[in-house]
Design a binder for these strands. Sequence first.
DNA 1: TATAAAACAGACCGGTTGTCCTGTTTTGTC
DNA 2: GACAAAACAGGACAACCGGTCTGTTTTATA
Lengths: 226, 226
Amino acid sequence: MTVRPKPRPQKRINDPEGMRKKVLDVAEVAFQARGYHASSLGDLMAAAGVSGGALHHHFPTKKALALAVIDERVAAAVEETWIAPVLVANTAREGVRAVFEAVAAELEQQGFVRGCPLNNLAHELSLADPDFRLALAGIFVGWRRAISDKLRADQQAGREEGTDPERFAALAVAAYSGAMSMAKTAQDASVLRDCLAGLERSALSPSQGGLAARRRRRVLLRPRTL
Amino acid sequence: MTVRPKPRPQKRINDPEGMRKKVLDVAEVAFQARGYHASSLGDLMAAAGVSGGALHHHFPTKKALALAVIDERVAAAVEETWIAPVLVANTAREGVRAVFEAVAAELEQQGFVRGCPLNNLAHELSLADPDFRLALAGIFVGWRRAISDKLRADQQAGREEGTDPERFAALAVAAYSGAMSMAKTAQDASVLRDCLAGLERSALSPSQGGLAARRRRRVLLRPRTL
DNA sequence: TATAAAACAGACCGGTTGTCCTGTTTTGTC
DNA sequence: GACAAAACAGGACAACCGGTCTGTTTTATA
């Protein structure tokens, strides 16, 4: 038996920012994977290794935690996944295509579709609480505006003159959201490529890409438990 | 004081089908408005005026009730709202347009967006339970197939020859699902019309409909409490 | 170093949840 | 009418949830 001279006088290090981040990390994943109502604070505390007192200190209520996740994490995810890639693309249309393909490739690689963080929470919480709804609606607005602004810039450069920016942005966001919804339910990311193909102007020309490249549907199984 | 000769020997009438229907009615509304996890069986029992014993007799578990709602009500809603109108339309494209416009008009009239029943439950339950996921995925498949079959029939009649049926169906369903998601979050049905306009071929022609007819956005407030 | 505030720990509580259980009434069947 | 099964009523219960509470430790400030 090893001797233990000092029972437990180990120092404790206060790391409010780190602890807050740890809670947000766990909550972000749990809210997306299981949803808001299905994620109990006990689960989050255990997963994050955080005491009840600490959790309550940083987030007085569960609602406050969810609002923080929406404002800080979901908005950032949309920014990183959609807005930034669209901004750096040559045109809005190319940006949209790039995001669709990047997400499809990522989902096929990781073999599991968790769905869109924004849409997941939007469906569950929009009607549950006005604060939730407003926070989520604002993210949608920013998402669409980034695309429509980009397309307007294209038009000032003489491209895409026949496309209405608002309509294009609305359709791009809606098609992506709906495609992710189906992909999540089917656990199959191929519907993303179907929708992208339909979004392209080339959807009007008969046999543009052919069927061979598109037919690689498969059922994906979850890689990690969570 | 009025005399009450017989304390309460009133007959009871067994109506298993009616009681089951009453429970499903209430559950369908509650699951859509508040979600599955946020709807307690106590709420449903109170709303339906059903005892716990009766509820448990027809639906042994909450999951069984939800599966019944999905199989019997959500599938029927998709059938009624989407599949039937598409089948009776002249073409698949006209059917899709008709549904978009009908739903948009209905939402604007009732002034409140509850969202798509299928997508609402799909987001909350797809990852929660394999049985839920499969049931919901099947409805999506039938939905898409109805559209793609219709478009294939159009093509055999010499129309829409440049459109891929699977892609068109996937995009139509995705655009609708995503648009309903945004409409629910924003409590504004106008995004449905934006997406419909983007779906039309006419999206490629510069000023086809003009802006005046489209700019009637407004924020809708809930009419009834629920 | 004195002191107050911030950060954290952990127990506790009232209310709710889904399910189960026992008992009673109705209904179909011989 | 006898009888078993179905239909229904309503209470009980253990588990769980979110929030609160008290107390301790760390940290910033003076």
